[in-house]
């Protein structure tokens, strides 16, 4: 771990300006950044602590029936909030399926969206990794890749985005709100927020240097049963092998409205609207669900250790959407 300077930002302007400097990093809960810094995977020269910035810890109801979540709202507070539990149970469940109670007490909404991959080679500074050391190669493609992606990856990176919360937010059509170093605000739909690795896996989002997440807003929830199911290697406190979030409305045995997305299989929450459309009006049975899953996973390929995820994704989706 290398030495760094530490600054406590008073407001967003101060934070974004400081964070814009090369080597600077915003720190919120620190549950991801500090681990990575200790292992010399992240090597910040300056930490900009945003935790004292006022106004970023609120959860507010919006006039259109949605909610706005401040960037510093902790995962624990968000999951437990009555508005969320009542209207977005999918989000509560997804958050509670992640990490541990202690970590969720520290972890923030902004930090969760920006947590880095858990790819084991990314964590091993002695191995090749295009994300950590651009141009060095990918140690996962021909190495251990049980936790890696089956869709959305590239020849340079097959890392998974590990967040459970982000999967729920993707289904809920969340919009990420940001402010950059020049004071400009953006509202970025979550699907556009994440970028696929292609040839430059070090770029994971569309954020510009210094640009900070100030909050996330969710539109009013769509109708339907909300669920989140996470399949993992132990009963709790493990990242997803495959997770499925869904909102489904069924009438007379047929899907009328359905949204679903996967976690644990792609570099970002994996939602394909065409696959959802294919289910509309279809009978609620394994075959129809499996066909929709085929569309969602078009082009999916395992890399050895993670081959099983294709079948597991199908089975989990059937478990979630099936009768």
């Amino acid at each position: 771990m290398k030495s760094f300077s530490y600054m406590r930002a008073r407001d967003v302007t101060e934070a974004t300006r400081a964070a814009q400097r090369p080597g600077s990093k915003v720190i919120a809960g620190g549950t991801n950044l500090l681990d990575l810094a200790k292992l010399s995977i992240e090597r910040p020269s300056a930490l900009i602590d945003v935790n004292r910035i006022p106004g970023l810890k609120e959860i507010r109801r919006l006039p259109d029936g949605g909610v706005r979540i401040g960037a510093l709202v902790t995962n624990a507070d968000l999951a437990a909030h009555p508005l969320i539990r009542e209207h977005y149970p999918l989000l509560s469940r997804a958050i509670l399926a992640g990490a541990s109670g202690q970590i969720r007490n520290m972890a923030t909404t902004g930090g969760n969206l920006l947590q880095r991959t858990r790819c084991v080679q990314f964590y091993d500074t002695s191995d090749r990794c295009n994300k950590r050391a651009p141009g060095s190669g990918c140690g996962a493609l021909d190495g251990a890749n049980r936790m890696n992606a089956i869709v959305g990856g590239s020849a340079s990176c097959i890392a998974v985005h590990p967040s459970d919360m982000a999967v729920a937010m993707r289904i809920l059509d969340a919009v990420v709100e940001t402010t950059d170093a020049h004071g400009a605000h953006r509202r970025i739909p979550i699907d556009d927020f994440y970028v696929l690795p292609d040839a430059a896996p070090q770029h994971e989002t569309v954020l510009t240097p210094g640009e900070m997440i100030t909050g996330v807003s969710l539109p009013a929830p769509p109708q339907g049963m909300q669920s989140y199911r996470k399949v993992r290697d132990r009963a709790s406190y493990a990242f997803a092998l495959v997770s499925v979030g869904a909102i489904a409305a069924v009438e007379e045995g047929h899907f009328t409205r359905v949204r679903f997305a996967f976690g644990g299989i792609a570099p970002k929450p994996w939602r394909i609207e065409a696959a959802e459309a294919a289910l509309r009006g279809k009978p609620r049975n394994a075959q129809a669900i499996s066909t929709a899953c085929d569309i969602a996973l078009a082009g999916a390929a395992g890399h050895g250790d993670n081959d099983f995820k294709i079948a597991l994704a199908h089975r989990t989706l059937i478990a979630v959407l099936g009768a």
Binding site: R118, V120, Y123, A144, D233, R234, A235, S236, Y237, F239
Partner: peptide
């Protein structure tokens, strides 16, 4: 491959 307690799993209470 696994070199920390996030990856090297041992049972937790729920298991």
């Amino acid at each position: 491959v696994m070199r920390d307690l996030a990856n090297y799993h041992v049972p937790i209470m729920a298991d």
